[in-house]
Design a protein around this nucleic acid. Structure first.
Lengths: 119, 119
DNA sequence: ATAAGACATCGATGGCTGTCAATATAGATG
DNA sequence: CATCTATATTGACAGCCATCGATGTCTTAT
């Protein structure tokens, strides 16, 4: 699981706001960010990510998430796997339960392109 | 072409940074942002958007864009159409040439979720 | 050991997507 | 009008994706 987060050098980030508008993205930058955005570009996964990130401690149990959707348990499991493979969430099994924790750096990597980078 | 940009109320934006982590997205919010992100979640379209946004005057002629990729002209045309339908760029035909112009509000709508909202 | 619960994986299916070659459209120019 | 150039549309194809039911795995409880 290589990390897709080292997207921008400090110099890039200095070009606040929207580096995407500051200068053309390199092929490499585009190919690193696109999978992140793709993983998040789904209503269910956006809500999952938001539910996890806004939950107490920045993490949520799958048992909390399944009930929030009118989708089968395997489908939710699939979406969580996509988020996990993209590096947007960490997975932590504790006893019978599995907790997913948001990785703010991953979100920031997208925000760094489309919005304003804090620092 | 309904506008997909009125994503967050001023109250939402006040919750800087990463509203996605502040409270769970509503179904409606998620369904409005996801198509925007989906349109941008492709390496070619990310570069197209960046080329357009960073070009002089925030707009670029298709003739400038075709040469930047090793893809057929119809394929670039297709990707521009996707960006246009998502509301990420405006289309302006002037004579024989077509200019695409970035809509910063659209980018900001994504940045507002994943990063920090300026104002 | 057996059963029950939490979550993941598998296999299938219908729909969407990126790409191209071929063709169409429309404006400019001779 | 005929032609050239810039861009879009069409049709086809291979590959990916969201979803489900069925099943597997692992952990705890009885």
């Amino acid at each position: 699981m290589s990390n897709a987060l080292a997207l921008l050098t400090p110099a890039d980030s200095a070009a606040c706001c929207s580096p995407l508008s500051a200068q053309p993205l390199t092929v490499e930058q585009a190919e690193r960010v696109a999978p992140l955005m793709k993983a998040l570009a789904d209503p269910v996964r956006l809500r999952l990510m938001s539910l996890i990130a806004s939950h107490d401690g920045g993490e949520a149990c799958v048992c909390d998430l399944n009930g929030a959707f009118e989708l089968s348990q395997p489908t939710i499991s699939h979406h969580l796997k996509v988020l996990h493979k993209a590096g947007l969430v960490n997975r932590d099994k504790r006893g019978v339960w599995v907790y997913y924790r948001a990785r703010p750096q991953a979100l920031a990597a997208i925000g760094a392109l489309t919005g304003c980078t804090p620092i």
